[in-house]
Write a protein that binds this DNA or RNA. Structure first.
Length: 230
DNA sequence: GCGACAG
DNA sequence: ATCTTGTCGC
């Protein structure tokens, strides 16, 4: 497991962070991403111990066809930013980057626990991570955040637009029949249709993608191990 | 101005 | 995110 410190020049105030978002936003690419079910799909997630100022990140690479784990990596560090809705990326990204760097394989599509385009400034965690790494990224969130949506039909695969006013910024996607939908948005180098198709391919059994389930449990374990002593 | 608000 | 046991169900 690798150890990270807060990057030099990392934004220290909300104003600085928003300025960074506004600058990087122009670099997002809207283009066809990797094919569904081919190559690698990587889940990233982060767990915190605010009390001890520790953050642990995990990156788990799956074979996109079988969903078997191919590789895992973790990283721990100091918390680099407080939680502020709309600025989540500044809290998660340094440690996530370190975990991704520690992987022995190319990540392929990266699936984030949170939003991409569906963001107050249209530059969420998935967009930010995509621009910094150049990798294709999507965001799959558990809550609608500040957006509105109609309830999708009951069958798995049903979807309804996730709206900011009348702008479709993502999709509420039912990954299990009769279960609360997940909220999918584009990060970098992927279309919304493909982001949803990938999400469905990653949810053969549970509401949340296998990628985020695996990354979530791994980063919690990493946090425990980093925190159990001291 | 106040509250809500991904994780 | 995090605080948290047993319990219902596939």
């Amino acid at each position: 497991m690798t150890t990270v410190s807060v990057p030099a020049g990392w934004p220290a105030t909300e104003e600085e962070a928003r300025a960074v978002q506004d600058e990087l936003r122009a670099r997002v690419l809207l283009e066809p991403g990797p094919p569904v079910g081919a190559g690698h799909v990587t889940g990233v997630d982060v767990a915190y111990d605010d009390e001890r100022d520790v953050v642990a990140a995990a990156a788990v690479v799956l074979d996109a066809a079988s969903l078997e784990v191919v590789a895992e990596a973790t990283a721990v560090g100091r918390i680099s930013f407080p939680y502020v809705p709309g600025l989540l990326a500044f809290r998660e990204i340094p440690t996530v980057l370190a975990a991704l760097d520690a992987l022995p394989y190319e990540p392929g599509l990266v699936v984030c626990d949170g939003y991409g385009l569906a963001h107050p400034r249209r530059f969420g965690l998935a967009s930010h991570l995509g621009v910094l790494t150049g990798l294709p990224t999507i965001g799959v969130a558990k809550n609608p955040f500040v957006f509105t949506h109609a309830d999708p039909d009951a069958p798995r695969g049903s979807a309804s637009p996730l709206l900011a006013g009348d702008e479709e910024v993502g999709r509420a996607l039912r990954t299990r029949a009769d279960v609360k939908p997940v909220f999918v948005s584009v990060g970098h180098r992927v279309t919304l249709d493909d982001a949803c198709a990938h999400t469905l391919a990653l949810t053969p059994r549970f509401r949340l993608p296998e990628t985020t389930r695996r990354a979530d449990s791994l980063c919690r374990r990493a946090l425990q191990e980093a925190t159990i002593r001291h």
